[in-house]
């Protein structure tokens, strides 16, 4: 059976050694080279044409994210598995865009990395389970914050209060703008929230945005500042 040819890119020598040992123990893998920077990883990849590059994110001379994007752009056949300490799904999106096939956390480097490399070679994607869950949760909860709101109609005054609050004004500022007391504004707010079934200021903002009520606000003026 043809062994998977692997390039290790990490600026940390001991870590590369550990990884080399780990992969050397796999019957279907062979490490063909090592690189200590993003730049070197690109050069070595062009020269050695590995099947999979195991890429660290924080490296000198071009970080792993940039290197991944360039590598995938130039050599689409070479897969990239990112090995990182960043347990942050924020990086995940960026890496997916850059064309990484795997996202493995350093603290679960052992078996997960081996598995991720095999999957990458088969054109599959491996995501660290904890991150995958979070990303999925965002997909589910994120946009769904556009909850159905009752289509109750607001009075002009209530609409005005909602607009001002949603724009980011304090109750006092809204009160000053409408020439009423802050208490009155608070009362209006309670009524608006009850009518529309909104649960928080954020939902209020989203509602106002959806209704297009904030479009004409971003103009110079004492209130729109």
């Amino acid at each position: 059976m043809k062994k998977l040819r692997i390039l290790l890119a990490d600026d940390h020598k001991m870590l590369r050694e550990g990884l080399r040992n780990l992969l050397a123990g796999q019957p279907d893998m062979t490490v063909v080279g090592e690189a200590a920077s993003g730049k070197e990883a690109l050069e070595k990849a062009a020269e050695l044409k590995p099947d999979v590059v195991v890429m660290d994110l924080s490296m000198p001379e071009m970080n792993g994210l940039q290197a991944t994007a360039l590598l995938r752009d130039k050599h689409p056949a070479i897969k990239v598995v990112v090995l990182t300490g960043h347990e942050d799904e924020s990086y995940l999106t960026q890496l997916c865009k850059a064309g990484a096939s795997g996202y493995v956390l350093k603290r679960s480097a052992g078996d997960e990395l081996v598995q991720a490399i095999r999957m990458a070679a088969r054109d599959q994607v491996y995501l660290a389970p904890t991150l995958a869950c979070k990303a999925l949760a965002r997909l589910v909860t994120g946009p769904s914050a556009n909850r159905e709101t009752t289509n109750a109609s607001l009075s002009d005054r209530e609409k005005e209060v909602l607009r001002l609050i949603a724009w980011g004004h304090s109750s006092k500022e809204a009160a000053d703008a409408l020439n009423v007391s802050a208490k009155t504004v608070a009362t209006y707010r309670v009524r608006i929230v009850e009518k529309l079934g909104l649960r928080s200021r954020a939902e209020l903002v989203k509602y106002a945005l959806r209704e297009g009520w904030l479009n004409d606000f971003d103009a110079p003026g004492p209130l729109a500042r």
Binding site: H12, G18, S58, G110
Partner: peptide
């Protein structure tokens, strides 16, 4: 993150090996 984290990863890989 970068230094200690890497060292620890290496340590862990070494232990696994």
């Amino acid at each position: 993150h970068d230094r200690l984290g890497q060292d620890l990863t290496a340590l862990k890989l070494g232990l696994q090996n």
